[in-house]
Structures are given as structure tokens and as C-alpha cells.
């Protein structure tokens, strides 16, 4: 499989990847390296993992990072309630201490969390570690260990080695600087907002029924809107919502009715200041230029 095959496989799932991204992803797959994706919110970082999982027919395991994420949520946890009950039951049955200990610290009592689940699958899954920049440094350091060895040590059980190596995709919005060690371990790709042609292709892939003229207007409008000085720049998902809203309302031309256009802007502008800034006149002007 070459990177162009991968690109068309993703396109078949409705994901239009740039050459840059397709090569990086292909290398990640063939060299078995994690891929670190950075870029603004809404450029399709998370969606890539979803589409890749579908294209490969693999399971997607997702770990959403947040501040204070710890091993009990990311790796594994013992099922304490079940252990307690089991100990009680064993006492009544007259089971010996050794046997009880062996039983309650077995895989049956282990709750798998995303990282452990990802390395114990029969077929290689896609492991998405989303917004890694939100987790703290301690977790990042641990992640490095897992990503290089693909094994996890549970003190009571011993070391669990990966049966298959998952395809790892990490995403970051850049809320803090990631450590150099993590960056070195990963392949890197920076995702920009798509250009006009790419965005048209994305729209076409998601909504094949949208008319060419309206499609060009939608994409042109959103691209111009991104150049405005907004608090939240609309991403691809917003563009698709906008298209869906327009199609749902049965609008064929953006420039015809400024009032309706203003109502549908709620799909693109997500803060009050942005709404106030893009007045009907501004919106009409942008729509006029985009047409």
C-alpha cells in the first residue's frame, strides 16, 4: 500500500487528506511510529483517526486527555467492589488465602482503560490520544514509555506485552508546549485550514447533493470569514453544519436573502462578540465577494 492508496482509501470514507498528511500517516503506519497532529481547532485532526479506523476496518480506541488524567482512567484499575465481594464469598467457602489472592488479582478483576485495551486487542486498533497538551507532564512522560515499549506493567500481575501494536495518533491544540522527548518520538504533521479546492472536495464528499454553485458560495463565504478578526475561527465541522443548515432551509443562493443568511450564521459564529461583529451588512458584503 502506497500513500496514494491510503489517500484514496480515506477519500472513500469522506476524508480529504493533503499530500503532506497522507505521507506522514503512511510513514506512521509503515514505520510503526505514533503520529502527532497539531493545528487549530476544527481542521479535522480527530476526524482523521475516525476515518482511518473505518478505512482499515479497525477498532477505534479513544483516550480524551484532560488535566489531572491519571493511571486509573488511562491505563487500568482494579475492580475493588468485585474484589471485596469475592473476598467475603471466599471466607464463607473456606478458600485459602493464597488461592483468594491469586484469584482477585487476575485479569478477570482488572478494568481495562484505553491504553491497556489498545495493546491487548487481537487486531491492531487505532488509538487516538486526543488533546495530549491538556494532560500534565507526568502523564506525558508515562505515555512516552508506553509508546516506545508497547508494554504495561501491573505490579500485581506482571508485565502485559502488546499482542498487536496499535496505530497511534496524538492530537494537540497547542495550549502548552509539548516536551521535546515526545515530539522526537512521533512523526509530525501540522494541519492548516484547507484551501478552497480541498474544502470544496470535503463538502462534495460529505454532501454529494449540494449544488455546485451553492457549494462554491458556502466555501468562499467561510474562507473569507476566516480572514476576519474573530474570537473563534470557524473550522470544517462548522462549515459542514452551515451547509446542512442552508440545504435544510432550501436556500439555493447565499446573496438572495440577507436575513436568512444572518439566521444561519449561528452555525459558524460561536461567541457573542463574533455575532455582533458580523452584522447583516458585513455578512452580505462577504457573501457578495465570495460569490
Amino acid at each position: 500500500m502506497t500513500w496514494t492508496d491510503l489517500k484514496s482509501a480515506l477519500a472513500a470514507e469522506g476524508y480529504v487528506a493533503s499530500d503532506d498528511l497522507a505521507v506522514a500517516l503512511h510513514l506512521g503506519l509503515s514505520l510503526q511510529r505514533p503520529l502527532l497532529l497539531e493545528g487549530s481547532a476544527g481542521v479535522g485532526k480527530t476526524q482523521l483517526a475516525h476515518s482511518l479506523a473505518i478505512a482499515r476496518g479497525a477498532k477505534l480506541i479513544r483516550l480524551q486527555c484532560y488535566e489531572g488524567l491519571d493511571s486509573a482512567q488511562a491505563i487500568y484499575e482494579w475492580n475493588y467492589q468485585k474484589q471485596l465481594l469475592s473476598i467475603r464469598a471466599a471466607a464463607e467457602n473456606g478458600e485459602t488465602g493464597n488461592a483468594v489472592e491469586k484469584r482477585i488479582f487476575s485479569r478477570e478483576f482488572l478494568l481495562e482503560r484505553p491504553l491497556l485495551a489498545a495493546i491487548t486487542q487481537d487486531t491492531a486498533p487505532v488509538l487516538l490520544i486526543d488533546e495530549i497538551d491538556r494532560a500534565d507532564e507526568a502523564f506525558e512522560a508515562y505515555l512516552l514509555e508506553v509508546l516506545s515499549e508497547f508494554q504495561i506493567t501491573v505490579p500485581e500481575l506482571g508485565t502485559i506485552t502488546a499482542t498487536t501494536k496499535p496505530v497511534v495518533i496524538l492530537t494537540s491544540n497547542g495550549t502548552r508546549d509539548l516536551s521535546d522527548a515526545l515530539r522526537r518520538r512521533c512523526l509530525y504533521s501540522y494541519m492548516e485550514y484547507p484551501d478552497r479546492m480541498t474544502e470544496l472536495a470535503i463538502l462534495g464528499a460529505r454532501y454529494p447533493t449540494v449544488e455546485t454553485r451553492l457549494g462554491q458560495q458556502i466555501v468562499g463565504f467561510v474562507q473569507k470569514l476566516r480572514e476576519e478578526d474573530l474570537e473563534k475561527t470557524p473550522g470544517i465541522a462548522e462549515m459542514l453544519d452551515f451547509a446542512a443548515a442552508l440545504m435544510g432551509l432550501g436556500i439555493a443562493d447565499l446573496t438572495r436573502d440577507p436575513a436568512v443568511l444572518q439566521h444561519t450564521l449561528s452555525t459558524l459564529l460561536k461567541t457573542q462578540n463574533d455575532r455582533a461583529q458580523i452584522t447583516p451588512e458585513v455578512a452580505a458584503r462577504i457573501a457578495g465577494r465570495a460569490a
Binding site: T2, D20, A24, H26, L31, D180
Partner: peptide
């Protein structure tokens, strides 16, 4: 290793592959 995974004779392919490997942040990219 990466050159084995892409068509190494194409300069553009080598460029994309090495960019993924050698860079680690937007500035470097």
C-alpha cells in the same frame, strides 16, 4: 527507512516524508 516506504526517486515524496520525521513543531515545519 522512510525512503523505502515512499517512492524515493521523487524529490517531492522524500521532502514530505522527511518533513514528517525531522520536524517537531510548526515553526520547524
Amino acid at each position: 527507512e522512510a525512503l523505502c516506504a515512499v517512492e524515493a526517486v521523487e524529490a517531492q515524496h522524500a521532502r514530505l516524508a522527511w518533513r514528517a520525521i525531522c520536524t517537531g513543531c510548526k515553526d520547524e515545519a
